[in-house]
């Protein structure tokens, strides 16, 4: 991998090694004027999203060992490798089916906010349940980085997680971290930056073993959606939501929000989301 010189003054040795690029990290807190990339942070409740968020942005969102600590979105920023990243900490959810307000907030941001990278923080000790969310996120967006957090706890429970195998199976970068003990962040930053700048192309795994009776309706609807919205990146996911009768997505199609998406010009999605949150309160 070719790497630019570190932008900050750094001492020789480790700091010039691309892997140890944390020296390039500049925590920006909430001082976000303009940014090059938007990074969404999602994951199940209580897997350490806020801890990761705080470590990268230098903010101090309150963290705690209980699910549902983060109820609204938090935003912060950092500068890494010469690019400015805006990071959005989404509420923790088990799925993206929008059955409650926090799931809707998370889902809408990933769908309509069109982040450049979506980091899914997963609990290494509960991989199976956490992967459900990863697979759902990967249906919506290609640009996914999996942050395999709580690796310290996995070690404590004598679990070995093969992150290379996982990365190969999922088709996206997988970075083991231990946010509580500040391990793995240089690698995570590099992965985020690689996916954001397109240096690493992701090819996420798509759920494929659906029962045969669903296969035909899905493919038929996908065809038509692709015909009407040729540039839509996630036609299959939209088809699944429509077949499931998801009111929000039906509404998005009626109002033409989905059409905007396919042309990549949804206007200020973050602002809209904020308004909608206010309205539902």
């Amino acid at each position: 991998m070719t790497e630019k010189q570190p932008t900050l003054e750094s001492q020789a040795g480790c700091a010039t090694c691309p892997v140890h690029n944390a020296a390039n990290l500049l925590k920006l807190g909430v001082n976000m004027e303009d940014w090059d990339f938007v990074v969404a942070l999602s994951g199940n409740p209580n897997v350490g999203k806020s801890t990761v968020f705080n470590a990268l942005t230098g903010l101090r969102q309150h963290t705690g060992n209980w699910p549902g600590k983060t109820v609204a979105r938090a935003e912060g920023g950092f500068d890494y490798g010469g690019h400015r990243f805006k990071m959005v900490d989404l509420p923790g959810t088990y799925s993206l089916l929008a059955t409650s307000l926090d799931e809707e907030v998370a889902r809408d941001f990933i769908l309509f906010g069109q982040p450049d990278v979506t980091v899914v923080v997963v609990d290494a000790t509960r991989l199976e349940r956490n992967l459900n969310l990863v697979l759902q996120v990967a249906e919506i967006t290609d640009r996914v980085v999996v942050c395999l957090n709580l690796i310290d706890e996995a070690r404590r429970n004598h679990l070995l997680v093969d992150e290379r195998r996982l990365a190969r199976d999922l088709g996206v970068p997988v970075v083991p971290t231990s946010a509580r003990y500040n391990e793995g962040f240089p690698e995570l930053l590099q992965a985020i930056s690689d996916v954001a700048t397109g240096q690493v192309a992701t090819k996420p795994y798509r759920v494929q073993n659906e029962p045969p009776e669903l296969k035909r309706p899905i493919s038929q609807l996908v065809d038509q959606i692709q015909h009407v919205f040729p540039d839509l990146p996630n036609a299959r996911w939209v088809a699944l939501r429509l077949l499931d009768g998801d009111e929000r997505i039906i509404e998005a199609i009626q109002k033409g929000e989905l059409g905007d998406l396919s042309h990549g010009s949804s206007e200020d999605p973050a602002g809209n989301l904020e308004l909608r949150l206010e309205a539902t309160r």
Partner: peptide, 15 residues
């Protein structure tokens, strides 16, 4: 379907 796929992938990665 999602659960089954998640279980399969997780099973391959965790020992």
């Amino acid at each position: 379907t999602i659960y089954a796929d998640a279980a399969r992938i997780a099973d391959r990665a965790v020992t």
